[in-house]
């Protein structure tokens, strides 16, 4: 971490995003609070339905929030008027999971990259070509392929173009929504390195969302673990992977298949049951039906997210210290 790591870039308080699907309420994001510091990579990990993608979209105001607040550099993006919202859009951006579906198939790369500049009327149109070329070069695409269509590139190259687009407006903060998950491993490694290089060079801040614990662990300074719309544990990476406290985090780490033959066979010790639906989450702690250490209290009351040591927060009745007596 670098010196400005203590500046809070984004402050999220009790953020809720609910959807209505076929008349039923889906609590995709149900009361999430955390801070994002300038210059850090904050990892968000969890299984499908945990709300990690909704989190990324909501803090960029790409979904309507149901409750709670987001403050980006002290301002709430949801209450910004036209010009301020435009400036928020310029400072933030996003990279998506599937590079094939996140690039408009009817537009040439040049048009895709020119659009942000045009929408924001950034600089002189005469300079746009140079800017497009230089960012393509920075992301590892030869500028002479500018006039190709997305389908004429391989998956890894398409993702490089997606990254290039996210950089066009020179943002400060990028949400990486499963940005490497759809790629073959050898390509994934290239893109991860690229993202890390860009982060250092441009002094970016990432919210790095992924279901792949190995990837999140490698890139992140801190990690949020989510389960059914809520944060169950938050800690600096070393602490989270070295001393996981929430039973779900422990299970997740254990289930993750590593290539370390010393752990052979251990990652297949199963956690019982399916992930419940966010439409009817279990009462009490959402993890209680699957939790190996479940207590009576867990089925009745949702545990608060509590700091058990500096920067390490857990939502679990096992760690409620004084209050549990």
């Amino acid at each position: 971490m670098n010196d400005n790591s203590n500046h809070v870039l984004m402050e999220v308080q009790d953020l809720k995003t609910w959807f209505t699907v076929n008349g039923e309420k889906v609590l995709a994001l149900d009361g999430v609070s955390f801070q994002l510091r300038e210059g850090e990579i904050l990892g968000v990990v969890g299984e499908s339905g945990c709300g990690k993608s909704t989190l990324g979209r909501t803090i960029l105001r790409l979904e309507q929030k149901t409750g709670g607040s987001v403050l980006y550099r002290g301002k709430d993006p949801f209450s910004l008027a036209k010009d301020d919202l435009k400036s928020f859009r310029r400072q933030t951006s996003m990279v998506f999971q599937d590079p094939s579906s996140s690039l408009n198939p009817r537009k040439r790369v040049d048009q895709i990259l020119r659009q942000p500049l045009r929408v924001h009327s950034l600089g002189e149109p005469a300079e746009w070509n140079d800017r497009i070329n230089s960012i393509l070069q920075e992301t590892g695409i030869a500028p002479q392929y500018r006039n190709r269509y997305p389908h004429q590139f391989s998956g890894g190259q398409k993702q490089r173009i997606g990254v290039a687009r996210s950089l066009m407006l020179d943002p400060d903060f990028i949400v990486m929504d499963e940005a490497v998950s759809a790629l073959d491993v050898s390509i994934q490694a290239q893109i991860l390195n690229l993202l890390l290089d860009l982060k250092d060079k441009r002094n970016l801040t990432y919210l790095f969302i992924s279901h792949d614990l190995g990837v999140v662990e490698f890139v992140s300074d801190r990690i949020l673990v989510m389960y059914l719309g809520r944060i169950v544990e938050e800690a600096p990476t070393v602490i989270l992977t070295g001393k996981p406290s929430h039973p779900y985090t422990q299970a997740l780490l254990k289930a993750f298949p590593t290539t370390d033959l010393a752990t052979r066979g251990s990652s297949i010790s199963p956690l019982e049951g399916d992930v419940p639906s966010p439409i009817h989450p279990p009462s009490g702690c959402h993890f209680s039906p699957r939790c190996p250490q479940v207590m009576d209290r867990c089925r009745e009351e949702y545990p608060p997210l509590r700091e058990i040591e500096n920067g390490h927060r857990v939502a679990c009745w096992l760690y409620q210290g004084k209050t549990s007596h």
Partner: peptide, 26 residues
């Protein structure tokens, strides 16, 4: 609902351009 529309929205593209410049051609 597709990602490329979300991507274009995330940079602040207006509704008119999204409708007739991006969605319609597809």
């Amino acid at each position: 609902e597709s990602d490329y529309i979300l991507a274009e929205r995330s940079i602040g593209t207006g509704d008119f351009e999204l409708m007739f410049g991006s969605i319609l051609p597809n």
